[in-house]
Nucleic acid binder design. Structure first.
Lengths: 232, 232
DNA sequence: CCGTTCTGAGGACATATGTCCTATCCTCTT
DNA sequence: AAGAGGATAGGACATATGTCCTCAGAACGG
């Protein structure tokens, strides 16, 4: 899962992602590239974090679990993105669980090293500012989306997001319903209501339900139902 | 509304708020202290911003207006807080309208000056990171609050927030209902439903409705209804 | 002072969503 | 193969919230 390359390789890859200027020379020795497979957890809510992760390839899912055990999806993220930034800055436990949706490649940076070699490195600070400002904006629209749109729209949006990955044409239109209950929690509704809405979408011919899988029949129709797409 | 002090005064006041290290020497000449009265708009959604504001005294209200004309309250802020940071970083128009709830004092910093003298000043960048990370966290809980709590809880929370200001014991427990419709928009519900909930709270003896004003009768009861208080 | 208009409160109804419960089906054990 | 246990879909009902409409009182012009 982890991987240490020769410095020259590392710098080359950093440069490829245009991330080289972020890390001052002495910090680079503390970077590690990590790969995760589909479904792997990158970090778990409640733990004390020790690393900043920079997502450079693949797609990850961020969700939170409430005291009552409800899971609420917060976002899907694609490169370039950072995990652990808020926690690093605030010095708090990990707020959300992060899971790989596709094969994922990340740069791992220990907090200690950032403190030691990056605290005064303006390009890194500005990069983080940019990333967090974007996160904030996304969170804002997410709030509006949830306040303004129905479960139906959110479900449609979710299905589109899960089934189609721009970089992964495989399995297009299939969703495993391994646990529909999880799916319900993910979009912030009850299992019961999810069923209702699924049935409605089926009746409208947008999707087909089949033996633990969902098949998307009418992508454009779904997109219409989704309105703004919040999860992408 | 604006005020330019002698440099020594300015530095003294900055020091008083512990903000002196944020601004490198050459940037200080471009700072202005501004005062706003209750109800004054500090900035308006959609405009192109030109200043960063640092709130050092008083209380402000942040809200957004949707295309359909609905107003949604986003937060109440108290010192130390920054306005315009996201817009500065992203280079976008002002996302939300900001209004003084009490008399307010702010430090105004032109974007140009930040670009010129602050871009590489790590203390300022770290300060902004801290502020935005906090905003992000608050936005997160706001999202949960809205998703998890009813209009009733949100209304109670709102009333508590509007009526009681820690630094302002005047008018405790009074809310002007100048425009109940605005209030409805502020907590993200319809006017009709707001009325229902007000009636219910009245029936429970928590508040009294009287000729365009609301009187809070049972603060603790309200707090109970509010659950987590999101607006403070 | 009267009719007109306007605004705010509330009634009636529709819709969205949550909660609880049940029937069905599948799997696993014995 | 029969029974137990769990998972899943859906029925019945309750609650929260939105939409539309009406009525009464305030404001206002003539």
């Amino acid at each position: 899962m982890k991987e240490r390359s020769k410095p020259s390789d590392l710098e080359q890859e950093l440069a490829h992602y245009k991330l080289l200027p972020l890390f001052p020379e002495p910090l680079r020795a503390h970077l590690t590239f990590c790969n995760f497979g589909e479904g792997d957890l990158i970090c778990s809510q409640g733990e004390m974090p020790a690393y900043l992760y920079v997502l450079v390839k693949g797609k990850i899912k961020v969700y939170t679990t409430s005291e009552e055990g409800n899971t609420l999806i917060l976002s899907f993220l694609t490169p370039i993105e950072v995990i652990g930034d808020i926690e690093y800055i605030q010095g708090i436990p990990i707020m959300n669980t992060v899971e790989a949706v596709t094969p994922v490649r990340m740069i791992r940076v220990p907090f200690r090293s950032v403190n030691e070699f990056g605290r005064d490195h303006a390009p890194l600070l500005r990069f983080l500012l940019k990333i967090i400002a974007e996160k904030f904006q996304r969170k804002s629209s997410s709030l509006s989306f949830n306040l303004l749109h129905s479960v139906e729209a959110r479900l449609a949006s979710y299905l589109l997001s899960v089934c189609y990955d721009k970089n992964d044409v495989q399995f297009e239109g299939h969703v495993s319903l391994a646990s529909l209950k999880d799916t319900a929690n993910l979009i912030g509704t009850s299992y019961r209501h999810l069923n209702r809405v699924l049935k409605k979408l089926s009746a409208e011919g947008l999707i087909k339900r089949d033996k633990g899988f969902l098949q998307i029949l009418d992508r454009e129709g779904l997109r219409l139902v989704a309105g703004d797409n919040m999860y992408e």
